[in-house]
Design a protein around this nucleic acid. Structure first.
Lengths: 145, 145
DNA sequence: CGATAAATAATCGTGCGCGATATAAAAACA
DNA sequence: TGTTTTTATATCGCGCACGATTATTTATCG
């Protein structure tokens, strides 16, 4: 790095702005489902595996309960999710999709394709880039752990 | 994409979580300077070019005035930046670094190196990845424009 | 010139995202 | 058993981030 304090040389700035750019592409698609982007991620995770706990979902999404609890309450108000205390362990809150929540998946099925199209890349190329970014994330997470 | 609705296959999720991971690495480094991460980006941009307008800075950082105005007020309160209306065009607000704000650059100079170290990659490799992510950002921005 | 349109910040409301703390339940321990 | 510690979630305060709107100034147009 020639000039260490130049914005355009920052990997962080690239990731930060790419994240915002992705959000802007998702916005109109998710508006149609009545979801925000983090809510969509929670729903995707629950479509993969219903009945997760708040903590389990947080581990998958790398989010704290202080972020998830209000978000999940909004999904509950929207009628997509039910939050119920586990009988076995009253500390745990189990998340269950409502019928409407399960149904929403059909409407969401086309979204990933729209993102691939907006990226202007092949799915194969995106997958390669994606795994590189995941590797970066893992290295960063290791360094703080 | 075999399963289009699988979280681990989402480029967006990779970027989203990598962005959070970067933030977590930056946090302790920036705490020492009394800056948040977006404030740091604004300072980096002003260190590169003092006397930018709110709109100009927003264009560089891809942020709206509704985000920047409060952020810049906090930087002003912290004593790093002055906000003054332009004499030529009263609509425009010009941003100028205070002496303290200029000074802060010395304390920030070591941060990029810490990030490279935390990433566990070579600077060359990071630069390549960074330019790929920028290309993705540009493609996405084009698709919404 | 005056009316209209465009440009620039600022304000407001909503939803993250996190650290610090609180609360309650379960587990561990003496 | 009763006490302490740990675990799981929730609450609170702060700072983004954005869309929609507003206020003010400048530019444009007839």
């Amino acid at each position: 790095m020639q000039d260490p304090l130049k914005l355009d040389n920052f990997i962080c700035f690239a990731v930060y702005t790419a994240s915002h750019a992705l959000n802007r592409v998702y916005k109109p698609l998710l508006d149609a489902l009545g979801l925000t982007y983090p809510q969509y991620l929670a729903m995707v995770s629950l479509w993969e595996q219903d009945g997760q706990t708040v903590g389990g979902l947080g581990e998958k999404l790398f989010l704290e309960s202080s972020t998830l609890t209000p978000l999940l309450k909004r999904l509950e108000t929207a009628g997509y999710v039910r939050r119920e205390r586990s009988k076995d362990d009253e500390r745990v809150v189990v998340l269950r999709l409502t019928e409407e929540g399960k149904h929403l998946r059909e409407k969401a099925i086309g979204i990933p394709g729209c993102i691939v199209a907006a990226s202007g890349r092949s799915a194969v190329d995106l997958t390669r880039l994606q795994s590189e970014i995941v590797a970066l994330r893992e290295a960063l997470n290791r360094s703080v752990a």
